[in-house]
């Protein structure tokens, strides 16, 4: 019996979009070291479309997999659509997460939203 789905393990072992965007248009960081999870998202946005996204995560296997999946789900999408991303969508795309790991998908949703809010703020 495996702890995680194949999809979670794939995104954990081969995380997509890992890294930093130096001249990001929006940056969001959520979580804290005390709880053992921190996610940081970097967005490059052109004409309100997310052209590039990178992440850095300190956390467990599902936190890394959730970050990776979330970046895949919003890459190339308009900002308005990315704002609608839910933790449920992240978890479903990973073929599910154990109940006590659902907060990892929540963190991914919050990290994306935080980066988008940062972008909106900078735009003003």
């Amino acid at each position: 019996m495996a702890l995680y789905s194949e999809k979670v393990m794939d995104h954990f072992r081969n995380p997509r979009n890992v890294g930093v965007i130096e001249d990001a248009d929006g940056v969001g960081e959520v979580g804290n070291a005390k709880c053992g999870d921190i996610m940081k998202m970097y967005l490059k946005i052109d004409d309100d479309v997310i052209t590039d996204v990178k992440f850095e995560t300190f956390g467990c296997g599902s936190a890394i997999a959730s970050s990776s999946m979330a970046t895949e789900l919003i890459k190339g999408k308009p900002v308005s659509e990315a704002m609608e991303l839910t933790n449920k969508a992240v978890a479903e795309a990973l073929d599910g997460l154990p109940d006590y790991k659902m907060h990892c998908s929540v963190l991914a949703e919050e990290a994306i939203r935080s980066a988008l809010e940062d972008y909106e703020m900078k735009k003003k």
Binding site: M9, F58, G59, C60, G61
Partner: peptide, 29 residues
């Protein structure tokens, strides 16, 4: 700078089975 569960999972991939005192391995915060 790292979290124990991801360390354990990657060590398991390398054939090393160990444990950690991280929250994520205990199911608590």
């Amino acid at each position: 700078g790292i979290e124990g569960e991801s360390l354990l999972l990657l060590l398991d991939d390398k054939g090393i089975q160990a444990s950690s005192g991280s929250a994520c391995t205990s199911g608590s915060l």
